[in-house]
């Protein structure tokens, strides 16, 4: 093994649970501290957690990281997340990461569009923007006020589908308005595909850069199973389709390159 390889600590590593609590009726925040030195995750990157005896690890975007400490925001959806929900303070978590690509932070007035648990990585991105004093506008969309809870972000513009909190409607209905109002130069988004697809369309119309963080089910997290392979376009040559793997080339992509299903 050469010198640069030994520096990497991506091996399956243990972390200790510091906290694991509900932030809304079906959303949780897991806070852990890694036992080994963590390569600091960047916004957009993910970690993959071994869930009990499940054959496939579960991937989660990092929602906050500092030194050896990091957090994920998750919804309980199936067996894997049920296992994570039951983790108690002091218990150990087997994870690999950070994995995948990160958002490219530029000194441009930016719009963050986070839908549901997609708000997590946007919060992390906002933290980095604040540290670098880059201005941003944060749109956080949820189905209903019971889904919120994550909104420890007073500056986020809350939007709920049913209008029970903040502005009413779909988050996509507010994208153009905020782009114009806040003279946005770049968009970052993480959320359901239809939201990101719409955001990408608007970005294209207005000739703005957009980065999207995509989620797909995969088996390996490390770029070999091809489970998460998607079609992407070459921006300069849109007729040419290129296969990219979410876990390796993504999860963050140039939004203009995605072929939405």
């Amino acid at each position: 093994m050469n010198a640069t390889m030994t520096k990497l600590v991506k091996k399956a590593t243990l972390a200790t649970v510091k906290a694991n609590h509900k932030v809304s009726h079906n959303t949780y925040r897991l806070c852990v501290e890694s036992e080994k030195d963590l390569i600091e995750p960047q916004p957009g990157q993910f970690i993959s957690i071994l869930c009990s005896n499940l054959v496939v690890r579960r991937p989660f975007s990092v929602a906050f990281a500092q030194d050896n400490y990091f957090e994920i925001i998750y919804k309980v959806r199936g067996e894997g997340t049920k296992y994570i929900e039951n983790l108690k303070e002091g218990q150990q978590v087997n994870y690999i990461g950070p994995l995948g690509s990160a958002f490219c932070i530029e000194n441009k007035k930016s719009l963050f569009i986070g839908g549901g648990v997609g708000v997590g990585p946007m919060m992390f991105l906002a933290q980095r923007f604040k540290e670098q004093s880059i201005p941003y506008t944060f749109l956080a969309g949820f189905h209903s006020n019971i889904d919120i809870g994550l909104a420890g972000f007073p500056e986020a513009v809350l939007i709920t589908d049913d209008g029970t909190s903040g502005k009413q409607g779909s988050i996509v209905d507010y994208i153009k308005e905020y782009i114009e109002k806040d003279k946005i130069e770049k968009i970052y988004t993480c959320g359901p595909d239809p939201v990101m697809q719409k955001a990408a369309k608007i970005a294209e119309e207005l000739d703005l850069c957009i980065e999207v963080a995509i989620e797909r089910f995969f088996a390996c997290s490390v770029g070999v199973c091809m489970g998460c392979s998607i079609d992407t376009k070459d921006v300069d040559n849109p007729e040419t389709l290129v296969k990219k793997r979410i876990c390796k080339h993504g999860p963050v992509f140039d939004g203009r390159t995605i072929v939405w299903e």
């Binding site: 054959v55 995969f218 091809m226 489970g227 998460c228 392979s229 296969k243």
Partner: peptide, 23 residues
């Protein structure tokens, strides 16, 4: 080969079903 469309993998009890299609 481009392989099959998504979804391509599904975990089951103690196992994994894949239909990558030789990408």
């Amino acid at each position: 080969r481009k392989g099959n469309p998504q979804p391509r993998v599904q975990d089951v009890t103690n196992g994994l079903i894949n239909r990558i299609g030789l990408e």
